[in-house]
Amino acid sequence: MKMKMKNQIKQISTSFFSTIFLFENGKAIEYLNENYSKQNPSKIQIENIQKVAAGSFNEAILTKEGNVFAKGEYINSKNPNEFINISSLIKDLNDRIIQDIVSGDSSIYLLTSNQNVYGIGLNYYSQLGFDSEALKETEKPILMMKNVSKIFSGNSSYSAFLLNSNQELFGCGYNQDGQLGLGESKKEETKIQKLTKIKNIPKGKIIDIQCGFTHSIMLIENQNQNQNPKRKLYSCGESEYNGLGKNDENTYEFTEIKSSLFENDDNILDFSCGAGQTLILTSNSKLIGFGGNLFGQLGNGNKNTHLIPIQIKLPKLRFNENISNYHISCGFNKSFLYYSPPSFSNLEEDLIKLFERKEFCNISFKTKNGGNN
């Protein structure tokens, strides 16, 4: 079906109970999967959306004006299904313009235009950087750290990472499986109560960090002036269920994921972590994955766990020549491969693929309140 440019996919964010589809026209729809009872997508009644973030027990919407609307059990206990403006709850009036949002399993992180980070939601595992005994949860944003350039977490994670303007990395939250990369000596500390500097991280520019339930994956770009930038993946945590891409090894510091699948002329375009699975898209049109696969979320035709990287057969892509415009989004038990061209693109059609139950399938966007988005 022909689709106008404004209806092209811009982003997908998916978690355990929900999946949000954001379109180029600034509108979004959400697909709920409560108690495994499938429902049709419904329109989100918020305009001018810039970014969406879904966690297992919350959703967050960032508008182009810098406001954040969120809902969830730990965001608005009186009415968890109602979106409220959480950025307006920040006490500092000069700090209410939000630049970025990231969702954890039950917490939301806000990066302001002044480079301050606020957290809201569950803090039972100290994922907001405070003593969990004194503060189990908060429905008002609390200041976590100043002078921050990037924030990282995961839709199934009780951990968070913050990167300051000096490229120093800090982490807090759940660490029972060593997923904060603090080293062997810190592995037994289940909760890291305050933001702690992560030492011995790989050299290079940190592009992204994504957190699963018991592992974390870091994307580093080598910016050697004598060669083209090369991106590499590093992981830490437990591999028993999720895989770290390194045989059956556990590692409590970020170490490189090495595989013959990452050839010299390959570069990593995109990657995503769910609760247990990791999917990677390379410049040579390779789809690589490893980790949990009980629901077929690796899209390789079986439900076997793969602890080391495997190559997954891509579906027939309509826009194969524009592989850099494809993106991946992994949720708790499902994964998406979708085409998101730049805003200036002339393409008039969209493509979405869902990895689930042994095969790829297309997704339609007929909402329960009538019509397409």
Rank of each mutant, 00 (worst) to 15 (best):
Q277H: 12
N164V: 10
Q50G: 00
I268H: 02
N264M: 12
D131N: 15
F365A: 05
I108A: 10
K203P: 12
N362Q: 11
G66C: 04
K186S: 12
N79T: 03
N85T: 01
S157I: 05
Q39H: 07
D265V: 00
L182D: 01
I49N: 00
E189G: 00
E137S: 15
D265A: 02
S343I: 00
N147F: 09
D92K: 12
K353T: 00
L219W: 01
K313M: 09
L219F: 05
Q223M: 06
K187L: 02
S106M: 11
L128F: 08
I201R: 13
I198M: 06
E356Q: 14
C361S: 14
G183P: 10
E137V: 05
D208E: 15
K64R: 11
I84F: 00
I209W: 10
N373E: 07
D100Q: 07
G104E: 11
H215R: 08
N166G: 05
N302S: 13
F360V: 08
K78L: 13
N94G: 13
S42G: 04
L281H: 02
Y158R: 14
S285L: 07
N333I: 09
F271D: 05
P309L: 02
D105Q: 11
N333K: 11
N123C: 10
I206V: 15
F332M: 15
I192R: 12
L163D: 09
Y338C: 08
L93Q: 15
N116T: 14
L294S: 14
I310F: 00
F152N: 01
G291A: 07
E348H: 08
G331I: 06
K38Q: 04
S156E: 14
K194C: 10
A275E: 14
S324P: 01
L122V: 11
N226D: 10
S235D: 04
I308K: 00
V52S: 04
L261C: 09
P309Y: 07
E168A: 04
E59P: 06
P80C: 04
G243H: 04
S216N: 06
Q176L: 04
K232P: 05
L162W: 04
G237S: 02
F344N: 09
N333G: 00
G237Q: 03
T282E: 00
K78C: 01
K258W: 01
S103F: 02
I12Q: 01
N373I: 00
N222K: 07
G204E: 05
L347F: 03
Y234R: 05
Q127C: 13
Q193I: 11
N242W: 10
A53M: 02
Q311H: 06
T63E: 04
C172T: 15
G212Q: 07
E47W: 04
I192E: 11
Q39G: 04
N7I: 06
L294T: 12
Q99L: 08
E321F: 04
F152M: 02
K205H: 08
S260H: 09
N33W: 12
Q50A: 11
I201G: 14
G178H: 03
T19F: 01
L89I: 11
Q311G: 03
E356I: 07
F332L: 15
E321Y: 02
S37A: 05
G183T: 07
K358N: 14
N79I: 03
G276K: 07
K353G: 03
T138P: 12
Y118S: 06
I257M: 10
L314Y: 13
N116S: 13
G26A: 01
Y118P: 04
N362E: 15
E133Q: 15
G371N: 13
N76F: 10
K140Y: 10
I363V: 11
S235Y: 03
Y234F: 14
Y36F: 09
L182R: 05
